[in-house]
Amino acid sequence: MPAPRPVTVPAAPQRLTLDLARTALVVVDMQNDFCSPKGWLASIGLDVSGTDRLVASLAETVPALRAAGVPVVWLTWASRPDRANIPPNVLHAYDIAGEGGGVGSVLPGGRSPVLEEGSWGAALVEGLEPAAGDIHVTKQRMSGFFDTPLDSVLRNLRVDTVLFTGVNADQCVLATLTDAACLGYDAVLLEDGVATTSPEFCLRATLYNVERCFGFVARGADLVAAVRDSAAAPADRGVPARSRSSACTV
Score class of each variant (00 low, 15 high):
Val70Gly: 08
Arg111Ile: 02
Arg219Met: 06
Ala42Ser: 13
Asp52Leu: 06
Ala42Thr: 06
Ile44Met: 01
Ala225Arg: 11
Val9His: 06
Ile44Ser: 00
Cys248Asp: 01
Asn209Val: 02
Val28Phe: 02
Asp19Glu: 04
Val55Ala: 02
Ala233Phe: 07
Ala122Phe: 07
Pro130Arg: 10
Asp19Trp: 11
Ile135Ala: 03
Leu107Cys: 03
Cys35Tyr: 07
Gly50Phe: 00
Asp160Arg: 15
Val194Asp: 11
Asp52Ser: 14
Asn85Asp: 15
Val239Lys: 00
Val173Cys: 06
Leu18His: 03
Glu60Lys: 15
Ala195Gln: 15
Ser57Gln: 14
Val210Ile: 15
Asp29Ala: 05
Glu129His: 15
Thr249Phe: 03
Pro71Leu: 05
Leu107Tyr: 06
Pro88Gly: 02
Pro88Asn: 08
Trp120Gly: 05
Leu177Pro: 13
Pro234His: 00
Leu16Pro: 04
Asp160Cys: 08
Asp186Thr: 15
Arg15Lys: 04
Ala122Lys: 03
Val137Arg: 00
Ser57Tyr: 06
Cys202Asn: 14
Cys213Ile: 09
Leu20Lys: 06
Val106Ala: 09
Met30Lys: 04
Lys139Ser: 01
Leu163Arg: 04
Val114Gly: 09
Ala132Arg: 09
Asp147Gly: 00
Leu150Lys: 06
Pro149Ser: 01
Trp120Cys: 05
Met1Cys: 10
Glu117Val: 12
Glu116Arg: 13
Ala12Ser: 11
Val9Ala: 00
Ala21Asp: 11
Pro13Ser: 07
Ile135Thr: 15
Arg228Val: 02
Val188Phe: 13
Arg155Asp: 10
Leu177Asp: 10
